[in-house]
Design a protein around this nucleic acid. Structure first.
Lengths: 148, 148
DNA sequence: TACTAACTAATTGCGCGCAATAAAACAGTG
DNA sequence: CACTGTTTTATTGCGCGCAATTAGTTAGTA
């Protein structure tokens, strides 16, 4: 049972796009993070960077970039801001001064505790059955894996 | 069958986030649009704005903003750029000069034909079963609808 | 030692994305 | 008409996001 082709321009309709709801949904969810993150003084991007450090500890900018899918053009200034806030420390490894090693300060480590309020605040922000959310997450990861 | 709670910080792991794959996936897909859109001289955001005009014709900035979920801070300069490129015309309705009416120029209308190459180029960019993509789109729209 | 190539991060430039504020036009009321 | 509040868009300020370029470090090779 197929829908009949009506207009060759149908492919340009917003409602027929997959990317638009993807783009809009990501923006909307990230917007909701702002309020809980303001309490930590972090942007959403800074938050995911901090999550990586909380979970894995210090690493180079390049390694970080692979995990969060961001390049040096975004991360270099972002990491400087985090350092200015006293959350991370940037240094050059003696054995290879091209690399930039970044690790948490005590203050950065301590913020992990406060950060627990963020998932707490976001819980229930998306009022959908858990199965739907799990399925959505799986599909997104499938798409990402496929595009790598 | 539930997984046992292991660590109260598990909620801060990147792999347990729904938002991160959403954010990463949107960025990745939009990045893939760049090449086909470069041929039209449009960014992704400009492209979805043009799609709205192609489908619905001229409208005010406010109406446009509702459709594409963007505010004046983003749309005002974007529309000026589109006008500078000769794709749209901005004007003030005589009956209400607060509003900004935007409509396509002949050049803007003509670009619709060329824009058919974009969905064409993107087809197969996400190499997944169509059912998965449809399901993904439905879930995203469900989330969006729920957050309104 | 020189020379070259590869690697890693920083910088530049431009366009969002959005909260906050400002400015202009309109509508309603006394 | 003057005054007040609302509506609509524009502006400001800051932080991404990313392609392209630059710069510094390291490694490899003659």
């Amino acid at each position: 049972m197929e829908s009949l082709p009506q207009d060759k321009y149908d492919v340009l309709k917003l409602e027929n796009q997959l990317c638009f709801p993807l783009y809009a949904c990501a923006k909307e969810v990230i917007r909701r993070y702002r309020e809980p993150l303001d309490a930590l003084g972090l942007t959403y991007t800074q938050y995911i960077v901090m999550m990586v450090f909380w979970e894995f500890g210090g690493m180079t900018e390049g390694e970080l970039g692979e995990k969060v899918r961001l390049d040096s053009g975004t991360l270099a200034p972002l990491l400087k801001r985090l350092e200015k806030q006293g959350l991370v420390k940037r240094s050059r490894p003696e054995d290879n001064e091209r690399k930039l090693f970044v690790c948490l300060t005590d203050e950065g480590k301590a913020l992990k505790e406060k950060a627990l309020t963020v998932p707490e605040a976001m819980r229930g922000c998306i009022d959908l059955p858990v199965e739907d959310l799990i399925l959505l997450k799986m599909l997104l990861e499938k798409v990402l894996a496929q595009m790598d």
